[in-house]
Every structure is written in C-alpha cells, then in structure tokens.
C-alpha cells in the first residue's frame, strides 16, 4: 500500500473557454471547460486544476458558474486558482464546489493572507502557486526568483525561501511553475523542483514544460514531485492520462490505475 503520485491536467480558462498559451502568449482554443473536465474525470485524472486567467469582473462571475457546473459532474478533487485575493474569494470558490484554491500574487503582496486563509479554511485547501524563474548566471550556484503577473513582474524573492515561508504560513501544497520551461515542451526544471520539494514538508506539484511522458516520470523521480501537472499534451490529444500512468508505472512509480 502506498500513496499514488498524482497526474493533474490543468485547464487555463479565459472568459469561460479553455485556452493554452505558449509562454503566456499565443493562445489556442481548447474547448468548453466543463466538457474538458468531464473528459479528464472519465480518463482517470487524479485531480483537476482550473486556472482562471480572466481579468474582467464579469469573467469572474462566469468562473464561479463554470466551477459549479464542473463540481456537479466531476467527482475528483478540483483546485481553482487565479484572482484569489481575499477570504471572500476563497469562500465563493469553495461554495461553488472547489476543494482547494490556488493563491499566487496575493500571497506575494500580503503573505499574512495565506496565514489567515489557512486558519480559516484549513491548510488542506490552501495551495500556494509559485512562478519561478532562474536568475543565476552560468557557472553560478543555481538560484530562482519568484515572479508575479503571469511571469512579467520580478519580486526579488528567492523561490526556495518563499516556498518554505509559505508552508510555514499554512500552505497545504505548493504548485510550482517554472517560467523558463512553461510552454516549451522541454520538460520540468528538475533542479528547481527538487530544490523546492526537498525544502518543504508539504506536497509539491511540478508544472511547466511537459512535452512527453518521460518528462512526467522525471518530475517524480528526479524532481521528487508528489504530483505532476500538464496541459497541452493532454488537451491536444498527444497522450491520454492512462498512457501517462502506464508509462510512469513502468518506471516504477506508484500510480492509480
């Protein structure tokens, strides 16, 4: 008996449609989020992450309704991230049927928000999302910093220290995205993933850069991630979730089949 490593398809949703950007620009339409989520639920996904990249107020209301619709038909855990700035935002998403919320920029602006949210709703539903970019030059010891605003704004904060701080503040899980790899299909930043996973006592989800099944397995074996997140390899039908699991099992990884 052992805990399975999780495979998490990620839906980037803008104004009610699943989209997938390449390095946060160049968006391709990948369908209705409810249909996509249902498909992954049936295909054996262990969880679904829904990232709301909508900027407008109206779009946010659409998001709540979309989350409600997904939650009525999908019986696996659902994480909703994007634009979560207050306990009211969290309550709204949990009431709509989300199991966890992802907090990113709001944590950077006000780290105590993570504490307050975790105290109020429990660490089990607070995921801190970290967008990290390598800042060390060639030949230097590797160092990563966190960025906000979809990777456009540097913060000067060291990514490993930040992850430790966030888990001390009550994050139940870390969703770690490498900005250098996101959308490249070159695989996770394994050194970054491993550095964070070894530093924090809570589960780490690796994200950014998956282009094939080997990348998923590498994220678990070399990156020591507890879960791996991918979007485009699943959205565009290159691989099914079950193919990914079969491959990971061949590599000796415990999965839920």
């Amino acid at each position: 008996m052992a805990l399975a490593k999780r495979i998490i398809p990620c839906l980037d949703v803008d104004e009610g449609r699943v989209v997938k950007g390449v390095q946060f620009v160049d968006i391709r339409d990948a369908g209705d989020p409810v249909e996509v989520a249902k498909r992954y639920n049936e295909a054996g996904a262990d969880e679904i992450t829904f990232l709301d990249i909508t900027a407008s107020h109206q779009g946010r209301d659409t998001t709540v309704h979309t989350v409600e619709r997904i939650a009525s038909e999908v019986f696996i855990p659902l994480t909703v991230g994007g634009g979560i700035r207050s306990n009211d935002d969290i309550r709204r998403m949990l009431n709509a049927g989300a199991d966890k919320v992802g907090i990113n920029s709001a944590a950077v602006h006000n780290p105590d928000f993570v504490k307050a949210a975790s105290d109020r709703f429990g660490a089990q539903c607070i995921v801190v999302a970290i967008d990290a970019k390598q800042v060390s030059g060639e030949g230097e010891a590797k160092r990563w910093e966190i960025f906000t605003h979809g990777g456009r704004k540097p913060t000067g904060i060291d990514a490993v220290e930040w992850a430790e701080r966030m888990s001390n503040y009550g994050a139940g899980e870390i969703l770690l995205t490498s900005m250098d790899r996101d959308g490249t299909k070159n695989g996770f930043d394994l050194e970054l993933t491993r550095a964070i996973s070894d530093a924090v006592p809570v589960p780490v989800i690796a994200s950014g850069g998956v282009g094939n099944l080997q990348h998923l397995a590498d994220g678990v074996i070399d990156g020591r991630a507890d879960a791996v997140l991918a979007a485009s390899i699943f959205h565009f039908g290159e691989y099914t979730v079950n193919e990914a699991k079969a491959y990971m099992q061949e590599r000796g990884i415990e999965v839920r089949l």
Binding site: M1, A2, L3, A4, K5, R6, D46, A123, Q124, G172, E173, P201, V202, P203, V204, D226, A227, R256
Partner: peptide, 16 residues
C-alpha cells in the same frame, strides 16, 4: 516510508 524516504504531510492523494 517503509524504505526510509521522507513523507509529506498532509497525506494528500489516492491511497489504497
């Protein structure tokens, strides 16, 4: 774990 590997807490995910 039984093999001595550190385990994350919370216990989060699918177990038998």
């Amino acid at each position: 774990s039984a093999s001595g590997a550190p385990l994350k807490v919370p216990h989060m995910g699918w177990n038998q």
